[in-house]
């Protein structure tokens, strides 16, 4: 198919418009993953360690939120950020920041739920040792997060995969504005609607290559780290 070749060629030859799209996709999704990690990892760790009434219900809800439909998240963030909505004065709708917010909402439950599982498993293993060493609550959380860091990379990758692949949320809150909020996935949706299926497929292949590359990078880092720290 000539289309695939042309999309790949555009990337390889450094077509500025396409590179800007790729760059924005990465910036938005990586920023969302970083923010979601800052929220989701402490939340997941706290949920793993703190016993309180209703904890099981929170876990069930959190696990269910991993499957939040992007379009619903997009709509909710849209309504919040719209000028007529509660956060309208921020003026963020149809900006990359709105896309980051939407993807953060989408990804944070994934990272929190996977963190909760990972930390809880590790806590079962470490509990007696840490208690025997008289480690306080803050030290416990820090130790468990640090020692689970390689598993948590997997949680971050799951979040990144979700963010990079979704179109439903960012097309609503970003508006797919040429040169401003157009990402790989919204561009694919657009080219499909224009009937340029070969170009859409080509863009899709570029997206897949990027996602694989990010995963390979993280996997390599994880392996290297594990060799050093077990």
């Amino acid at each position: 198919m000539p289309g695939d070749v042309s999309a790949l060629q555009l990337v390889l030859t450094g077509d500025p418009a396409l590179l800007a799209i790729v760059r924005l996709s990465l910036i938005v999704s990586l920023s969302a993953v970083v923010l979601a990690a800052l929220i989701g990892i402490p939340f997941g760790a706290a949920l793993a360690l703190i016993q309180f009434p209703g904890r099981q219900a929170v876990i069930v809800v959190l696990n269910a939120l991993m499957g939040l439909p992007p379009v619903v998240v997009g709509l909710a963030v849209f309504l919040a950020l719209s000028r007529a909505g509660p956060l309208g004065s921020w003026g963020l709708l149809f900006t990359p920041k709105a896309m980051v917010i939407a993807q953060t909402v989408l990804v944070a439950p994934i990272i929190a739920a996977l963190t909760r599982q990972t930390i809880e498993d590790l806590w079962l293993e470490y509990r007696d040792e840490l208690n025997a060493m008289n480690v306080g609550p803050v030290g416990r959380v820090a130790t468990l997060i640090w020692d689970a860091r390689f598993s948590l990379v997997t949680a971050l990758l799951a979040g990144f995969g979700r963010a990079a692949a979704e179109v439903g949320a960012i097309i609503i809150v970003g508006g797919n504005i040429d040169g401003f909020t157009r990402t790989m996935t919204t561009a694919i949706a657009l080219e499909t609607s224009k009937g340029d299926l070969p170009l859409a497929v080509g863009l899709g292949m570029v997206l897949i290559v990027i996602v694989i590359a990010v995963n390979a990078l993280a996997w390599t880092a994880r392996r290297a780290g594990e060799r050093m720290a077990g």
């Binding site: 910036i27 990586l30 993953v33 970083v34 390689f150 990078l217 993280a218 880092a221 780290g225 050093m228």
Partner: peptide
């Protein structure tokens, strides 16, 4: 540490 460098790069890109 590889991971730390990676996370740093991500954080910087976010900024």
């Amino acid at each position: 540490m590889f991971t730390r460098r990676l996370l740093m790069a991500i954080a910087v890109s976010a900024v």
